[in-house]
Write a protein that binds this DNA or RNA. Structure first.
Lengths: 142, 142
DNA sequence: CTTGATGCAAAGTGTTTGCAACTTA
DNA sequence: TAAGTTGCAAACACTTTGCATCAAG
């Protein structure tokens, strides 16, 4: 999984004449070890544990590259803060977000995707990506 | 439409022992005159035309109240900037967003909503609100 | 008149950028 | 060794807040 992402990342960088630095390598690995969704700030502090010289600026710059290469995906769960999650090698999914405890539940729903495509066609619109978030109360908070 | 919103707003304020000031009245009216989606900044500059003494702080504070009273709805179309649109008296709708020209197309799709509810039930989750955004290329940009 | 509201400017957030020193290919 | 990268701190854009003054109920 990580190996795969490292390959994707180095190919991506090479194609753009960018360099695979030790910081970028470290940040990618740390992002892969992180479970679920993490913020830029969290990624910075985890990365610093692996290499204390890594700076905020480098984390943000690397995050942009990881997003662009589709290794990570950016999410905003409504609190205005951006979080990231692994995208490469995972199926597309959408989210249920508990507005009381913050719990995130992932789901896949093909019929919804099909209806989205049909809706887009109606408007002669080509979907590149989408975001579906259902906010409310989870099982334990309802 | 505006009359209705004014009623909603004054009821809302009264219930919370807040005051209906001339600034709040002005900002609500200006928000209703604005077409489509507008930013806090745009609302400020439009409000200043009606009453030049209205400050940024008051616009933000009023926007929070208009959101809370569900007269306005907040949207983020992916560029990180928040925009607002009238909610009261309008049907719920979702958005197609052109990532080239920025065009926003609104749509309603009941079957999708039903599938969302079914999905939520599967997780014993109570949906309070949701957000579905389809990003891609519109008719003219495709 | 009491309590909440306002404008201002200052302080916060989260993110980006300019730059000199440093790595990678 | 040329071109991209880094850390740092300053700059940014947007939003929020403290406070003295003002206005609604």
């Amino acid at each position: 999984m990580l190996k795969e992402a490292e390959k994707t990342f180095s190919d991506f960088l090479e194609k753009k004449d960018l360099k695979l630095t030790s910081q970028r390598r470290t940040i990618l690995r740390v992002a892969f070890e992180a479970e679920g969704h993490f913020s830029a700030e969290a990624l910075l502090s985890l990365s610093k544990k692996a290499d204390s010289t890594i700076s905020k600026a480098t984390v943000y710059r690397t995050l942009a590259l990881l997003k662009e290469s589709q290794i990570l995906e950016e999410q905003d769960f409504g609190d205005g803060k951006k979080v990231y999650e692994r995208a490469q090698g995972r199926k597309h999914h959408d989210h249920l977000i508990c507005i009381r405890c913050g719990k995130i539940i992932e789901f896949e729903n093909e019929p919804i995707e099909r209806l989205q495509n049909a809706e887009a066609q109606k408007h002669r619109f080509k979907i590149v990506y989408h975001s579906l978030k259902l906010f409310g109360f989870c099982n334990s908070c309802g």
